[in-house]
Amino acid sequence: MNSLHIDNLSASVEGKPILNNLSLDLPKGEVHAIMGPNGSGKSTLSKVLSGHPSYEVTSGSAMLDDKEIIGLDPDVISRLGLFLAFQYPVEIPGVSIANFIRAALKSRLTDEKSFKAVDFYKDLYGKMDELGINRKFTSRSLNDGFSGGEKKRCEILQMMMLNPKYCILDETDSGLDIDALRVVSAGVNKMRGSSRGILVITHYQRLLEYIVPNKVHVMWDGRIVRSGDKTLALELEEKGYDWIKDEIAA
């Protein structure tokens, strides 16, 4: 199957359950959005799928193109083709963006000699131009002293360079002004295609005006409680999360 298939996944952190029998199927070629209030477990889902060691999976599975990824190391999952654009990208002093992306690309090669520095820089500069990132950024330390918007652009740049099969964007819209939001969205839209599935985690409908999803899922208390098309996002925006809460209670 060509999908990221999550089946009855439950996970906890420090003994506290966060994900609660969550199921979701993200086929290649589609963009899905997950919306939900603070604390519903959206970010936890992204960390669990990436293999973060602080989270314990208590039951269920996640298959990336028929390969079980639960229990694998984060770098193995990454090389299988899962990319996480972080909500809070981590600062790595002294490591330049160019060197970092180059190392990440090389980690995917079986033969290091097939890496061509000239092609790499051509590709990198092209994508930086698309995202409106100044070329001087290539030598700056990764996320070190970046503004919120710069960090998010840099995440999308890495995503474009690494060419993953599945992307999870964890609140990429937070901290972006409207111009940056447009640029970042354009970058994500360019990544859409039949060979890739994209999962967009967001609080706000606004992002989905730019990245129009095939499906919208509402997350509540560690599971998906409702799925629909893009109009579900509009409905949520209008009625608020309390509406879902009342429906679940009913």
Partner: peptide, 21 residues
């Protein structure tokens, strides 16, 4: 974790941080 999420092994991630330092 951040560096590993991009595909670097644990020791590659560590030596990248140290080289950065």
């Amino acid at each position: 974790f951040y560096l590993k999420q991009r595909g670097l092994s644990e020791s590659e991630a560590m030596s990248m941080c140290v080289n950065g330092f």
